[in-house]
């Protein structure tokens, strides 16, 4: 579904990603771990198409499963040639590390606009209000969000935990195929972490893939990854199964970094 080849990117004058290679298939969950400053958030920003970042080399291909099951190869898209909104409409979703506040715009209005843009892209008519409200109600339950939050301004005055839950709620409503979670666990208490992880787990399916970016093993206790990759200084220096995360937790990142250098 996602194929990153020798990706080099950064901000002008500072290369942050120094040759990333990653293959993600539909149905898989990949965790990307790494110390501060290793390039994790840059990777998620580049995947989503944030303008401030320049890609100097490499390719990113995105092949969402075809709706009519014609095989994924049929719809291979060059992500780097697409605007952020085109990527989103094709099914790339980024759960932000710091969700942005938009004062005066209700969550519900925001989501309705988003969902109808996506539907327009798919040449579907706008969603009926009745159906939309039903959808909202159903998905809110998934992350145990209260009804009132839907009518409040996007992320404004939300607690840290509410903001993160709201991200997963939006993800549930928009039903993307590639979900990127950027440090969704940061700033969450144990209960909120469990709620967010449960929400994500319920969204796991054979047609959907997850890239979970995190510092800590604890999120991976709840969202069990198929693969774990260690990002350090702009490169993936080690990949393994879920047990790699436990090993990292026990030994710290220095252990691999040293091994990598030798």
């Amino acid at each position: 579904m996602l194929s990153i080849k020798n990706l080099r990117a950064g901000i002008p004058g500072n290369e942050i990603l120094k040759g990333i290679n990653l293959e993600v298939k539909a149905g898989e969950v990949h965790a990307i771990m790494g110390p501060n400053g290793s390039g994790k958030s840059t990777l998620s920003s580049v995947l989503a198409g944030k303008e401030n970042y320049q890609v100097t080399e490499g390719e990113i291909w995105f092949s969402p499963p075809s709706p009519r099951g014609e095989g994924s190869g049929m719809r291979r898209k060059n992500l780097l040639e697409m605007s952020p909104e085109e990527r989103a409409r094709e099914g790339v979703f980024l759960a932000f590390q710091y969700p942005v506040e938009i004062p005066g715009v209700s969550n519900i209005n925001f989501l309705k606009t988003a969902i109808n843009e996506i539907r327009l892209h798919r040449k579907q008519p706008p969603m009926e209000t009745k159906d939309f409200l039903k959808l909202i109600k159903e998905k809110q339950a998934l992350v145990e969000l209260q009804g009132t939050l839907a009518n409040r301004s996007v992320n404004e005055g939300f607690s840290g935990g509410e903001k993160k839950r709201n991200e997963i709620f939006q993800m549930a409503v928009l039903e993307p195929t590639l979900c990127i979670l950027d440090e969704t666990d940061s700033g969450l208490d144990i209960d909120a972490l469990r709620i967010v992880a449960n929400g994500v787990n319920k969204l796991r399916s054979k047609d959907r893939a997850f890239v979970v970016i995190t510092h800590y093993q604890r999120l991976l206790d709840h969202i069990i990854p198929d693969f774990v990759h260690v990002l350090s200084n702009g490169k993936i220096i080690k990949s393994g199964g879920k047990e790699l995360a436990l090993e990292l937790e026990a030994k710290g990142y220095d252990w691999i970094k040293e091994k990598d250098q030798t």
Partner: peptide
């Protein structure tokens, strides 16, 4: 704010309208 809207599938023009109307 603009990037956040775009990431949800809303283009810049629409996003500006949304943000300004909210304001």
């Amino acid at each position: 704010q603009l990037f956040y809207c775009q990431q949800r599938g809303i283009d810049k023009e629409k996003a500006i309208g949304l943000i300004v109307n909210g304001y």
